[in-house]
Simulated assay, not measured.
Amino acid sequence: MTTAEPGLRADAERNRDRILAAARRLYAREGLGISMASVAREAGVGKATLARRFATREELVTAVFADRMDGYAAAVAEALADADPWHGFTSYIENVCAMQAADRGFADVLTMTFPAARALESRRDEAYHGLVELISRAKAVGRLRDDFTSEDVVILLMANAGVVAATADAAPDAWRRLVGQMLRAYAAPGGELSALADAPAPSALYRAMIRAGRAE
């Protein structure tokens, strides 16, 4: 029995790694709507094995996106370290939206709450408090509109998640146009603005609309 333990532990660790790798692939490609059963099939393990490693969806999501939530919190810290509050604010928005564009699952994570996933929510809270400070600083130097609130960032992330999901195949850079236009809406009058990304080609948007229709 004693000699079998190391082998059992190694098998369990391999299964855990396979599950995480499968979940990352599926979440990045399809978003968080993927079922636990689909993750088990992708990993090549049984549902019982998946349940032993991750009893709930929240546990799996936490394990998959822990590093990305660290990156999310780090983006706020980096923005706060910028000597130019407006540049820090715009860089933060662009970086976080780029993280969404790179991973549809993470795009969903940023627009959902997971009360049972305490580690994930703790990092989100940390990032939120930094964001509030970032907004205050950008307003103090007269570059961000006075009526802008942290809730506007949540709305933007929800909108960006939708754009990423709808255009990922046909117009993968469409989110950049959305973010650029929204930053112009957030800016106080008279400030210098960075160049706006080109609009997607009409044909690319049409393909995205067809794809979205088929998904319904």
Rank of each mutant, 00 (worst) to 15 (best):
residue 51 A to Q: 11
residue 149 T to K: 10
residue 201 A to L: 11
residue 142 G to H: 05
residue 13 E to W: 08
residue 46 G to I: 10
residue 5 E to K: 02
residue 58 E to R: 12
residue 10 A to I: 12
residue 60 L to G: 01
residue 183 L to W: 10
residue 115 P to A: 15
residue 192 E to G: 13
residue 181 Q to V: 15
residue 69 M to A: 05
residue 2 T to A: 14
residue 89 F to Q: 00
residue 83 A to S: 12
residue 85 P to L: 13
residue 2 T to M: 13
residue 78 E to V: 12
residue 209 M to C: 10
residue 26 L to R: 06
residue 128 Y to H: 14
residue 53 R to K: 07
residue 25 R to K: 12
residue 150 S to D: 15
residue 117 A to C: 11
residue 119 A to C: 04
residue 3 T to N: 10
residue 45 V to W: 01
residue 48 A to Y: 00
residue 154 V to L: 08
residue 121 E to C: 00
residue 14 R to D: 14
residue 108 D to P: 03
residue 93 I to A: 08
residue 199 A to M: 09
residue 41 R to P: 01
residue 153 V to E: 06
residue 126 E to G: 07
residue 158 M to H: 05
residue 205 L to C: 08
residue 207 R to L: 04
residue 10 A to H: 14
residue 53 R to L: 09
residue 73 A to T: 03
residue 73 A to P: 02
residue 142 G to L: 04
residue 105 G to V: 02
residue 62 T to S: 13
residue 75 A to H: 09
residue 7 G to C: 07
residue 173 D to V: 04
residue 2 T to K: 13
residue 208 A to Y: 01
residue 32 L to W: 12
residue 152 D to C: 10
residue 69 M to P: 01
residue 98 A to D: 10
residue 158 M to S: 11
residue 125 D to Q: 15
residue 63 A to F: 01
residue 55 A to C: 15
residue 172 P to R: 13
residue 54 F to Q: 06
residue 191 G to S: 07
residue 139 K to G: 11
residue 94 E to Y: 12
residue 154 V to M: 09
residue 43 A to I: 04
residue 144 L to W: 02
